[in-house]
């Protein structure tokens, strides 16, 4: 059976990221614009238990788990990439960008931590040697995602780079110049977004076949890595997260994408407060959940695919000179056995 509840103790400002621990589907990290990172055990007591709070000096824009359930990395408006020891609360600055740092992501297979910043660089940290290198990007980093072998970087100006993680690992291993240690790594592929508007989020398929990206104009594109014509001709984009009010189409940005680790289907979360599950292979919407009370800023499936965490915060819209007040909450949805299963899978 599926059920849904909200965490009892929520951040006080916008939620920038929610992430489940790799080995535990009840351990959840939440980063917020209120300058804190929160660690919860979602099922220790009803409404979840706040285990710890890690204060930062600036709004935290992203968070990810590291090599185990007790290591995390954060980044934020203060230009720093930090390592958090979740047991002791100790924070170490790993590197500093020249601008706010939008994303951090960890690849366990290659033991690499990658951060992407608005200063148009990536920092690639080799966690086994604590070496790190800088890779120049043509424009600002807006979203990062890793598959088992690739890193997808979505940037402003609708650019998209796909790197082989092995190339990155090699480049960092070979170069140990002092910071910023700029290395030249050619992307495995450079693409332009197939959507007309700014890219909002990108997420890789867990089976390493491709990725989905979303734009601020209520659209999601699904593409495949394989450069062959046959695979490329399979790519498509579709409209979603829109509603018609008085004959006017209101188009919301699609802030969040997350792939289900088991079924390979994916969820999209939009400014309209709607979370929808899609079967990217069969081009079907599986289901759409009841509207959440505010914009969906971020989402994550737990490692076993049993839970979906949804970060809900009021959305930032055109013409606002302050953040709107509204609900800031993390919802945990327990998925039924077949809830996120695609069409093909259910036939078996």
């Amino acid at each position: 059976m599926s059920s849904q509840f909200e965490l009892a103790q929520n951040p006080t400002e916008h939620i920038s990221a929610v992430k489940f621990a790799p080995d535990s589907s009840t351990r959840l990290l939440v980063s917020s614009w209120d300058r804190n990172v929160y660690l919860y055990d979602t099922h220790a007591e009803p409404g979840g238990k706040l285990l710890q709070k890690f204060q930062h000096r600036a709004p935290v824009l992203d968070i990810c788990f590291g090599r185990d359930d007790n290591e995390a990395f954060s980044c934020g408006v203060d230009w720093d990439v930090r390592r958090l020891d979740l047991n002791t609360g100790e924070q170490t600055v790993l590197s500093s960008h020249q601008q706010g740092v939008r994303n951090v992501i960890f690849s366990s297979k290659h033991n690499l931590l990658v951060s992407g910043s608005w200063d148009c660089t990536l920092h690639v940290h080799d966690l086994s040697s604590d070496n790190w290198a800088t890779i120049q990007l043509p424009s600002k980093c807006f979203s990062l995602s890793v598959s088992p072998s690739k890193l997808v970087v979505a940037m402003s100006t609708r650019m998209l780079h796909i790197y082989q993680l092995s190339d990155l690992a090699q480049a960092v291993a070979q170069s140990n110049a002092p910071a910023p240690n700029i290395v030249q790594v050619n992307p495995w592929q450079q693409r332009e977004s197939s959507m007309k508007y700014m890219t909002r989020a990108v997420a890789c398929m867990p089976n390493d076949a491709g990725y989905a990206s979303s734009s601020i104009e209520g659209r999601v594109a699904v593409e495949w890595f394989d450069p062959s014509e046959a695979s490329q001709s399979r790519k498509y984009a579709f409209k979603c997260h829109r509603q018609t009010v008085d004959g006017q189409d209101i188009v919301y940005p699609v802030h969040a994408l997350a792939f289900h680790p088991v079924h390979g289907t994916f969820a999209s979360g939009g400014g309209d407060g709607v979370v929808a599950l899609w079967d990217g292979v069969h081009k079907r919407r599986i289901r759409q959940y009841q509207k959440f009370p505010a914009s969906i800023g971020c989402m994550d499936f737990s490692g076993d695919g049993k839970y979906l965490a949804v970060g809900v915060s009021p959305g930032f819209e055109d013409g606002m000179d302050d953040m709107p007040d509204g609900v800031v909450k993390v919802f945990i949805r327990e998925l039924g056995e077949t809830e996120a299963m695609g069409k093909g899978a259910s036939k078996k």
């Binding site: 614009w33 600036a58 709004p59 408006v77 230009w79 601020i216 209101i250 400014g271 930032f316």
Partner: peptide, 25 residues
Amino acid sequence: NIRLVFSGDTESPEERMVRLGRFEF
């Protein structure tokens, strides 16, 4: 007859939020 809720083309919502001042660092 379409209204984009957010329509920047070079600046993401987060960057604009930072510029609001409240979150500036």
